[in-house]
Amino acid sequence: MPAEWAPHERTWMAWPSAGYTLGDTDEEVESARRTWAAVARAVAGFEPVTVVATPDDADLARRYLTEGTDTPFAIEIVTAALDDAWMRDIGPSFVLGRGGELGAVNWVFNGWGGQHWASWEHDAQIATFVGEQAGASVIDSPLVNEGGGIHVDGEGTVLLTETVQLDAGRNPGMSHAEVEAELERTIGATTAIWLPRGLTRDYDEFGTRGHVDIVACFSEPGTVLLHWQEDPDHPDYEVSRAAEEVLRASRDAAGHPLTVVKVAAPRTLADDEGPVDWSYINHLVCNGGVVACVFDDPNDEQALATLSAAYPGRRVVGVDARPLFDRGGGIHCITQQQPLRPLT
């Protein structure tokens, strides 16, 4: 599995059409549509975007996605049945073979461990659909997993959490070794770095039970960006420090120790539902750019500067991600990159 900063063919997204993600009130529905469209247009500033929409929503999606100024790259719409719109999790994890062949890993998707509010009859088919649309060879896996549950350096190292991969609702009875063997078979990961858990809010009703992509990510081989909660009154203060301890004791697939870059969490600590899990880690690296979460928070500017330093030569664009986090995710969660096949 190539690193996210490797060249992309395009980015895939899904259009919110139903359920808790879309919302119940007119205001919630409008907020979801405008936020998904804003992310798609920001990504299309750097590379092509393909959005999966239900047949009934295709024209509506097209109107929102093309509203305003033209994007430098095209936003294409393809149609399929959907339950939800978190493409990172329902879509495939793309990989490249030794000869540059494109593969699409089809994890088992069961609604983030069988959450009582989730439906996944259609979403469980999206990885295969997207893989076939991309012209990839679909690689079926028996592992219950989502794209937000892993992050790779492109050189054989994968970050993951104990509470996702070993979740009784996902892979009951599986061992670390069994998970690692399947990740080696599917995405070529030879070294797994297990963080103990995710951020606290991610264990609430609409959470994923600990996705790694709001906690830590690679920005280059040997360097990990870490969500850093600085306020001891926030429950993620201890989560950040436990993750740091593991990362500083770990080595990557090349045998090198990791450099840990702390990315200060937003200063906003809570909303009406309790402690927030707002995270600048949940960004998407694109061709020549980074689409990053912002929160109208005093730490936004500092975070964008940190990301600019972490990805030199890329333009960093912020999109207000509060409507996404209200629904349980962020920008990385609604996007999935397709790597560019190398020239042969």
Score class of each variant (00 low, 15 high):
M1Y: 00
M1G: 04
P2G: 07
P2S: 11
P2I: 04
A3H: 04
E4Q: 07
A6Q: 14
H8A: 13
M13Y: 09
M13W: 11
P16S: 02
P16Q: 04
A18D: 14
Y20A: 11
L22C: 03
T25R: 01
T25V: 13
E27H: 00
E30G: 13
W36D: 04
V39L: 11
A42I: 10
F46D: 15
F46C: 12
F46V: 04
E47G: 08
V51W: 03
D56L: 12
D57S: 14
Y64I: 03
G68H: 08
D70F: 06
P72K: 06
P72L: 08
P72I: 09
A74Q: 14
L82Y: 00
L82F: 09
L82C: 10
D83L: 06
P92F: 10
R98K: 13
R98E: 15
G100Q: 10
F109H: 02
F109G: 04
G111V: 09
Q115M: 14
W117G: 06
A118E: 12
H122M: 01
I126N: 00
F129L: 05
G131F: 12
E132G: 08
G135Y: 08
G135C: 01
D140T: 15
P142K: 13
H151A: 10
H151T: 07
H151V: 02
V158S: 11
V158H: 08
L160R: 02
L160C: 13
R170Y: 01
S175P: 00
A177C: 00
V179W: 05
V179M: 08
L183M: 00
T191H: 08
W194E: 12
W194A: 09
L195F: 03
R197W: 00
Y203V: 03
E205F: 12
T208M: 07
G210N: 08
G222W: 03
H227M: 00
P232S: 05
D233G: 14
H234Q: 07
H234K: 06
V239L: 04
R241Y: 11
A243F: 00
E244G: 05
R248Y: 05
A249F: 00
R251C: 12
A253S: 15
A264D: 15
A264Y: 04
P266T: 10
V276T: 15
Y280L: 01
I281W: 04
N282H: 06
N282M: 01
H283G: 06
C286F: 01
G288L: 05
G289K: 07
V290C: 11
F295H: 01
D296N: 14
N299T: 09
E301K: 12
A303R: 00
A309D: 15
A310G: 12
R314Q: 08
R315T: 15
D320G: 06
R327F: 06
G328L: 05
G329Y: 06
H332P: 11
I334T: 01
I334Q: 06
I334E: 06
P339K: 10
L340Q: 15
L343I: 12
